[in-house]
Amino acid sequence: SAVVMEEGSPGEVPVLVEPPGLEDVEAALGMDRRTDAYSRSSSVSSQEEKSLHAEELVGRGIPIERVVSSEGGRPSVDLSFQPSQPLSKSSSSPELQTLQDILGDPGDKADVGRLSPEVKARSQSGTLDGESAAWSASGEDSRGQPEGPLPSSSPRSPSGLRPRGYTISDSAPSRRGKRVERDALKSRATASNAEKVPGINPSFVFLQLYHSPFFGDESNKPILLPNESQSFERSVQLLDQIPSYDTHKIAVLYVGEGQSNSELAILSNEHGSYRYTEFLTGLGRLIELKDCQPDKVYLGGLDVCGEDGQFTYCWHDDIMQAVFHIATLMPTKDVDKHRCDKKRHLGNDFVSIVYNDSGEDFKLGTIKGQFNFVHVIVTPLDYECNLVSLQCRKDMEGLVDTSVAKIVSDRNLPFVARQMALHANMASQVHHSRSNPTDIYPSKWIARLRHIKRLRQRICEEAAYSNPSLPLVHPPSHSKAPAQTPAEPTPGYEVGQRKRLISSVEDFTEFV
């Protein structure tokens, strides 16, 4: 048969007729292969192709491409040299491709048809291009793949890379869960390890502090508590009631339409708007009261037996805890006409967050109470924005700035309102402590230090009264110190430094 060459192609190359033996071998191979691939376009007849790359030819070592076609129900084999250009295909004639002069020997084609199974398996396991790669995943090629499931790999992101949580363990979102698992493993320790309690022994800490320079003076030496005195035992138990972190309780009120001037209507609300609910979820963490331990979680007086509701929101960081007394989460009882059960919590909070959804101005004093010092007013606006402002009593104007209003988005509203309420509550605590000038409020841990110092002074006084020969370590507060001759004046800087060093040991009130 003659071949018409394309323009620009090399000279004529004689194409030899395939021997009958080659056709029989390739026909047997075509019957084993699956003929249901995917359909081509209507211009080209339905056909199945599979590209198999052999590394070497037997005796020649030339890479070839073998295409199996099922045109007219008769499979045909096409061998081509890759750099050459194939002729145009037609549905009426068999596929013809040019070969190099080196394939002119018909014996070479017979060798190609009689490829060993080793070469076929190696060509099938190679990388296939384009559409033949999808075909190689079918059941027909499963014989050339190794048996057994593939090893499982770690989760992959859409980009093909490992997620960040699997790369950096410290930033993994499941870090707290692993800590819980470690605690569970520790709890399952053997009885021999049960006595080993991690941490620092208080006796060891005391020993280090006792021999430090801070205890060089007799006034700073630790003293032993009497065991037989019940009054001192009660004082030590009272110390446990003062937490070592700051605590805040903040009221949250929802004002519906037409309720801006009605205290009873505001306290009777059992739910609010959708934006109000989203605002609550951002204030803190939802907790169930019956599962809380009052000595570990500050509840601000809420009952854990269901008297004040089942849930509330709280927030904490390293040095403070805040609980929100939310009116809509507290039960509304029919027998309580004046809502006294709610007001006994909300009316005693220094700061209230008022979500004013009424469309009218909310005035300070609508919720009557002796300790309502500051109101954080949240007014929802259009386009997911809110107006946040402050209202306070006249005696609080020096501590709280009420002249600045803020426009905040719904997303950042819980954070801004919480921070403003916490700052206002700190100012309210300082303002409330002014009624007792001898006990200015600095912080909870300073209050613990003052309680310890008062307890020490009482013990020293009782020891001096029981044994008059012992001198008083600290003179009583009601006694007057003996007159001392004025010492020589020293520079102001040295006096300030000495006073600062003494105050650092005794108390921190002056620095606050």
Rank of each mutant, 00 (worst) to 15 (best):
217 D>R: 08
217 D>P: 15
219 S>I: 11
220 N>K: 09
220 N>T: 13
221 K>W: 14
222 P>H: 07
224 L>I: 10
227 N>D: 14
230 Q>H: 11
231 S>V: 14
232 F>P: 07
232 F>M: 11
234 R>Q: 14
235 S>V: 13
238 L>Y: 11
239 L>H: 08
245 Y>A: 05
246 D>K: 04
247 T>C: 14
248 H>S: 05
248 H>M: 14
250 I>S: 01
250 I>H: 00
251 A>W: 03
252 V>W: 00
253 L>P: 00
256 G>E: 01
258 G>T: 03
262 S>E: 08
263 E>L: 03
265 A>C: 05
266 I>A: 03
268 S>G: 08
268 S>A: 14
269 N>Q: 02
272 G>W: 03
276 Y>L: 01
277 T>Q: 09
279 F>K: 00
279 F>I: 00
283 L>C: 00
283 L>R: 00
283 L>N: 00
286 L>W: 04
287 I>Q: 10
287 I>L: 08
289 L>V: 10
292 C>S: 09
292 C>G: 15
294 P>T: 12
296 K>I: 06
296 K>E: 13
296 K>R: 09
297 V>W: 14
299 L>G: 15
299 L>R: 14
302 L>R: 15
302 L>D: 15
303 D>R: 15
303 D>I: 02
303 D>T: 05
309 G>H: 13
309 G>S: 14
310 Q>A: 09
310 Q>G: 11
313 Y>V: 13
314 C>D: 06
314 C>M: 10
315 W>D: 06
315 W>N: 03
315 W>R: 03
317 D>C: 02
318 D>T: 08
319 I>A: 06
321 Q>A: 14
322 A>G: 04
323 V>E: 14
325 H>D: 06
327 A>H: 04
328 T>K: 02
330 M>A: 06
331 P>R: 07
331 P>D: 05
333 K>R: 12
334 D>E: 13
334 D>H: 14
334 D>A: 15
334 D>V: 12
336 D>Q: 10
336 D>P: 08
339 R>F: 15
339 R>Y: 15
340 C>P: 10
340 C>M: 15
341 D>E: 09
342 K>F: 06
343 K>E: 07
344 R>V: 09
345 H>I: 14
347 G>F: 15
348 N>Y: 08
350 F>I: 02
352 S>E: 02
353 I>C: 01
357 D>T: 01
360 E>T: 10
361 D>S: 08
362 F>W: 13
364 L>N: 12
365 G>L: 03
366 T>W: 05
366 T>I: 09
366 T>Q: 04
368 K>P: 12
369 G>W: 10
370 Q>I: 13
372 N>V: 08
372 N>P: 14
374 V>M: 06
377 I>T: 05
377 I>Q: 06
378 V>F: 00
378 V>R: 01
380 P>Y: 00
380 P>K: 00
380 P>D: 00
381 L>F: 04
382 D>I: 02
382 D>S: 05
383 Y>I: 03
383 Y>T: 06
385 C>N: 06
386 N>E: 00
387 L>H: 06
388 V>C: 03
389 S>E: 15
390 L>F: 08
390 L>K: 02
391 Q>D: 09
391 Q>T: 09
391 Q>M: 12
392 C>D: 01
394 K>R: 11
395 D>M: 05
396 M>E: 02
397 E>K: 07
400 V>R: 03
400 V>P: 03
402 T>K: 07
402 T>P: 06
403 S>R: 09
403 S>K: 08
403 S>P: 07
408 V>Q: 00
410 D>V: 00
412 N>E: 03
414 P>D: 00
415 F>R: 02
417 A>S: 05
419 Q>T: 09
419 Q>E: 14
420 M>A: 07
424 A>F: 03
425 N>L: 04
426 M>Q: 03
428 S>W: 04
429 Q>T: 12
430 V>I: 14
432 H>G: 05
436 N>Q: 07
437 P>Y: 06
439 D>E: 10
443 S>N: 13
443 S>P: 08
444 K>L: 06
446 I>V: 14
446 I>S: 10
447 A>P: 13
448 R>H: 10
449 L>C: 07
449 L>K: 11
449 L>H: 08
454 R>H: 15
456 R>D: 15
457 Q>M: 08
457 Q>H: 12
458 R>C: 15
461 E>D: 13
461 E>G: 14
462 E>Y: 06
462 E>A: 06
462 E>Q: 11
466 S>W: 11
467 N>V: 14
468 P>K: 11
471 P>I: 06
474 H>T: 14
474 H>Q: 14
476 P>V: 10
476 P>I: 14
477 S>C: 11
481 A>L: 09
482 P>I: 14
483 A>D: 14
483 A>H: 11
484 Q>L: 11
488 E>S: 10
490 T>H: 12
492 G>P: 14
493 Y>H: 14
495 V>S: 15
499 K>R: 13
502 I>T: 14
502 I>Q: 15
504 S>G: 13
